[in-house]
Structures are given as structure tokens and as C-alpha cells.
Design a protein around this nucleic acid. Structure first.
Lengths: 205, 205, 205, 205
DNA sequence: TATGAATGAGCTTTCATTCAT
DNA sequence: AATGAATGAAAGCTCATTCAT
């Protein structure tokens, strides 16, 4: 058996491993549609994924790690979308805000997980680093867009504020009691656009 | 025994009852300092409060009810502070934003509970109504302040946006991993002020 | 204050005490209509009776004692009815059986309590003695009726058998799943009459 | 691994599973000797069985299900015995009655559980069906024996009456206060035989 | 590597009983 | 005598995690 064959096998195995992880993540996500992510149990995930309970622990050291992985996947997903949007001509701050909030609004579990880790979860150092990396990228993107929109002296802090403001729309209105999904989507979208308006006119600082 | 004596006794008992409720709430809050509010158990609260487990159920039908009561108490508290601030001369949007965010920042458990109920908690109808009432009051207050700050056509939606933006500061930075409490307080305060700047210049809509 | 006055007062108090006990028993019985007697709580009884929880313990040392008192009351009640029936001309074994089973069938909680004490309850000596006394009276009554019905050498054991047989109708059919109350009453009644037939022709032994 | 090996393994597992269920049932039954079956707790059963608490819930969804399973096992057991007895030559109604009552008398917990489900327990539909099935079988057996014993027009209702009468012996005398086990066994046996006498001479109806 | 039965600490909640008023 | 708030042991049950196969 040659070295290159070994490398090929290893790659294959790595691929398989990733496929399994994705399988498990997807199973978990599909359960989030039905219930609060904190109520989803390992057993349910295993059943949904069609694997044994123990198998999950071959891929994740704990449930929290699985949840964090799901978070990363979504974060990467949204980054991708924002980047794609930016590639298009004339993409404005409005578009960015709308895209971001719509994404959150249609991926509530992602938002719940993010909240979980930001408000109470104790992340491991490795996770913290990854989180910071993602945040920095996102913040860069926001800052760039803000700069294109208008002059802004302290653009970094404004980017932070914008990020906060958009997240806040979710926490404040994503499950407003007594409103249905369509009403909520309409309201959050409207707020996102208003937020873009306001930040577009943000004073130089 | 005269009528007035009876009334006195009843009042005393009512006071005592309130004192006990406060005792229990305070015990719960003090535990929130150490762990996520969802991880706090009845037993711990009872021990902290120096009462029996059963006693708690003499005052609250369930843990969720206790948590909601804590939420109400804090919501009322912050309303009070905002109102007091507004009474003072020259209270600005900056002051309001700073006060609100500082309050949240120094009462994280309150924010966690709010998030819990807003993101996933199933509130009973009575609770929902109370929640809506509080929200309306707060929104009125924000709207008033915005109007005083400058012309604003669609001031209600702007108030909603401001509320969301301030809450978002918390979710986004209140427990930013790798920073200590002072740094976080400084950062959130700075963001609150920047947010006030931005909203003060909000376009008429 | 004279001795006779004191005696009058004492009697008054005794009456009042009995009235209270009856009040409590009736409250408990009215709750039995809604749920299994084992599920009825002291709190509920107190509320239904319009007295404080502690008051019940002024009249009964424990819940079991209350239940036993209820049992005694019903036992006495049914004795009374059987006795009245016997006073009438031409009262037959059929009448006795029908009356007994109908009584049980319309007083299921009584039957449940009886079962509770016979199958598992540890009675205090005093209670045991009372129970035996009642049983002896009932057995005498059954024996007398059997003797009137026909010659029967070992009439005592036959009385025991009849008593057992009638109770058995209840345990076996009082809550037969899938049948409504009327059907059950009809079936148990029919069985009671058949039982009377059979025992009326009981061999001399 | 061949198909037959797999089948072997599956069978082994099924056997193991049954063995575990039996282990748990036996543990529960052995506790019934000491206390009312309603007072037996999951923890006690687990300890007695030498397994963890959670293990029990791997085999039964609830305590009630375990109890019902115990009931089924005993019901099946007694059916078996009655059937075996019937196979022998000259098995009479006396033999049947004696066997049934003796079985109940030496398996009081079974009788308690039966009473529990018959008097108050809410059975699931599936359980009700099983219960009815068993009852029908037993009743068929009683009816057959009665027919062999003598002419009997309405033999079904007489079978019902006999079943009730035998059960009644238990509820009425199985734990008669003040008598020891031997006395009780002797008395119930005597009553069972008397009952057989009486039913053997049952009028045609 | 995949499995899933076993585990037991841990949860919320109930409720008979007590006792200070 | 009447009260009802306080109590805490005890209940049934859950579920993340482990580990022998």
C-alpha cells in the first residue's frame, strides 16, 4: 500500500466522518423545528439521524459541542450569503440588514443557540477563538458596507452597534406573543429596513 | 377585636406574605449570579432563602411563575428609574440609553429571563397581558423621548427599533468571552451612547 | 353554675363536636364522587368542609382514621337499611341481596375504603374491634335470613359465603371497563338476584 | 456473520430482555410481601432487582405498566393451572374453586393489583382489551365446568356469579384482622369448598 | 467504529402532618 | 378550638453520558 493510497483512504475517511457529522447536525436541526433546542434530547437526535446514541459521542464530546457546531455551520452559512450579496452590484446597507434579519427570523434555532452561548454557555477556549474569528469577519463586512454608505469616523464601533441592533430585533420581536409567523416576519423586516435607514444617516461619530 | 384591628392584622399578614415573596425572589436572584437561571433548582433557592422547599410552592405555583415574577419586579424597577430620570430637567436620549443598558448590564439574570420568555417560554395568557402592558409603557416612554429629541415622522416604529437595538447590545456583548465585567460594562456603555447618537439623528422616516 | 348546667354544656359541646365530624365526613364523601378516595387530600377536604386544615386534625388523628370513620358510618347505614327491610313482612333473601349490592353499587367509595382496610390497611386494635362487631351483626342478619329461607345445617359458614359472594360482585363488576353506570347497576343487580337464587337452594351442608 | 447467527443473537437478546423483565417483576413481587403494592416505589424495586432506577424505565414506560404486566403474568399462570387441572380425570367444581382461591390466597399482591385495576385504575385501551380477553377465557372455563357439574340454563350468568363469589372470598377474608395466615388459608379454603357445594346445586335459572 | 442498555444524580412537585398564633 | 403557613421526605420520572459488546 503506497503513501498516496493511504492519504486517499484517510481523505475518504475524513469525508465519511464529515458526512456523519452533517447527518447528525441535520437531524438535530430538523428537531428544532418542533421544539426549543434546549428540549431536544440525544435520544431524539440519534433516532432522527438513524444512528445509535453512542455514535453521536464518537463525533461530539458533548451535546454542547454539537450545538456549537450547528452554530458554526449557520454562522458560516450567513457569512457566505452576505459575501455573495456583496459581490452583486449596488448591494446596499438595506439589503444587508434585510438579509441578516430575514436569515435569523427563518432560523430561530440558530438564534436560540447563539443566545445560549452568548448569555450563559461556557465555551471552551477553542470555541471562543472560532467565535471571535467569525465575529471579526462579520464585523469587517459590516464596517465595509457602512463605509461605502457614507463617511463614518468611528466605523468600527458603529459596526458593533449595527450588529447589536440587528440581533436585538430578533430577541425583541422574533416570538412576540400573539402574533403569527407572517406578522413577525413583516415586522422584523420593517424594523430591519428602518434600522438601515437610521444607520445610513449615522453621524460621523 | 375591632374592625380596624382586623384590618391591621390582614395588612400585617399581607406584608409578611410580600416579605416572604421578596425573600424567595432575592434568593433566586442571588443564585443567578453564579449560574444560568435555567440551572437554578428549587432546592437551591429554598436553601438560599432559608425556607423549606414546600414553602416556595405556597407562594408560587411553579418555578416559571417565580421567574416571571422576578421579571415583573425588574421590569417595574427599570420603568421606575426611567420615569424618575425623565422627571429631571434635561434628561436626554443619551441618558435614557445609558440608564437602560447599564441596568441590563448589571442585572444580567433579568435579561436572561426576559430572553427566556421572549424566545421560548410559553407564557400564560395573564402573563402575556402583563408583558404587553409593560412593553407598551416602555415603548411610550421611548417614543416620547425620541419626539423630544427631534422630529420623527414614524416615531413608533423608531421606538421599536431603539428598544431592539438596546436589547441587542446586551445579547451581543454582555458576556463576550475573554473580557471581564468592567470591560464589558465600558463597551456596552459606549455602544449605548453611540446608539443614542445614531437614533438622535434618525431620519424622519 | 350548677352541675346540671355543666352537664348541659358538655352535651352541647359533644353535639357540636359530632356536628363538626359529620361536616368533615360529608365533605370527604362529596369529594369521593369526583375522584378515587386515595387521591383526595386533606386540603381538599378542609376546603370543601369550610374549615381549616388543622381543624381536621382536632377531630381525627390521621386521614386513615377519618376514612375509617366514614367506613363505620356507611356500615351502620347499611345495617340500618337491612334491619328496616327485615321489619317488613315477607322480606326475602332476594330483597336482602338486592339491597346490599345496590347499596355498594351506589356507594363505591365506601366499597373502596372497605377494600383498602381489608386488603392493606393496618387497623388499630380499637378499629379492629369495631369492625368485628359490625361484621358479627351483619353475619347474624344474613344467617337469620338464610334460616328463614330454608333448612341449612352449617348456616354460619353459608352466611360467610353469601357475604363474600355479594362483596365479590362489586370487586368483579363495579367498574367493568367499557360499560356505563346503568349497565353496571343492571348487571350487578342481576347477579345479586341470581346469587340469592343459588343460596336459597344451598344444600344443607 | 451468517443470517442464522444473527437470528441467534436476536433471540439471545430477546431472551435477555425477557430475563430482565422477569428480574424486575420478581423484585417487585418480593416487595409486595412486605407492603401494599401501592406503597412500593421505583427505587425499592430497582434496589431489590439490583439494577438502576433508569433501567426499569427501559423496560416499562411507567410503574402502572409494570404492575399490569405482573397482573398479566399471574393471570396467565392461574389460567395455566386451571387448564392443567381440567386435563386430569375427574376434576370437579370443588377442585376448581379450591385451586382458584388457594392461588389468590397465596398470591395476595396479584389480588391487590387486580382490585386496583378493577376498582380504580385507568387502564389504557390495549390493557383493557387484554384484561377482557383473559376474563373471557376464565369465564369460558368456569362455564364449561358448571355445565359438566349439572344442568344449568343460564350458565353464563352463573359463571359470572361464581367468579364474583370466589373473588369475594378474598376481599372479605384474605386479611381478616386478628387471624394468622394459616387460619385464613383454612377459612378461605373451607369457604371455597362450600361455595362449590352451593354452586353445584345451583338451580337451573 | 457503532451500538444501545445501564446508570444514577437530579429534577419538579405533592401532601400529610405540625405548631405558633 | 381553629387556623393555615411551613415543612421536608418522598414520589415518579428524565436524560446526558458511559462502556461492554
Amino acid at each position: 500500500m503506497t503513501t498516496s493510497t493511504l492519504r486517499g483512504l484517510a481523505a475518504l475517511r475524513e469525508n465519511e466522518r464529515d458526512a456523519r457529522r452533517t447527518l447528525i447536525m441535520d437531524a438535530a436541526c430538523s428537531l428544532f423545528a418542533k421544539k426549543d433546542f434546549k428540549q431536544v434530547t440525544v435520544r431524539e437526535i440519534a433516532k432522527q439521524a438513524g444512528v445509535g446514541v453512542g455514535t453521536i459521542y464518537n463525533y461530539y464530546a458533548s451535546l454542547d459541542e454539537l450545538f456549537f457546531d450547528i452554530f458554526l455551520k449557520h454562522a458560516s452559512d450567513i457569512q457566505q450569503r452576505l459575501y455573495s450579496q456583496a459581490q452583486q452590484k449596488n448591494a446596499t446597507l438595506h439589503d444587508l440588514c434585510a438579509l441578516y434579519v430575514e436569515y435569523l427570523c427563518t432560523h430561530i434555532p440558530f438564534y436560540q443557540i447563539m443566545s445560549h452561548f452568548m448569555l450563559g454557555g461556557d465555551l471552551m477556549p477553542a470555541a471562543t477563538e472560532k467565535l471571535n474569528h467569525i465575529m471579526r469577519q462579520l464585523m469587517d463586512h459590516l464596517e465595509d458596507t457602512l463605509k461605502k454608505t457614507g463617511p463614518c469616523e468611528d466605523s468600527r464601533i458603529t459596526a458593533h452597534a449595527l450588529f447589536a441592533a440587528l440581533n436585538g430585533i430578533m430577541i425583541s420581536y422574533a416570538r412576540y406573543p400573539g402574533r403569527n409567523d407572517d406578522e413577525i416576519l413583516a415586522h422584523t423586516r420593517r424594523l430591519a429596513l428602518r434600522m438601515a435607514d437610521i444607520f445610513a444617516k449615522a453621524p460621523a461619530g
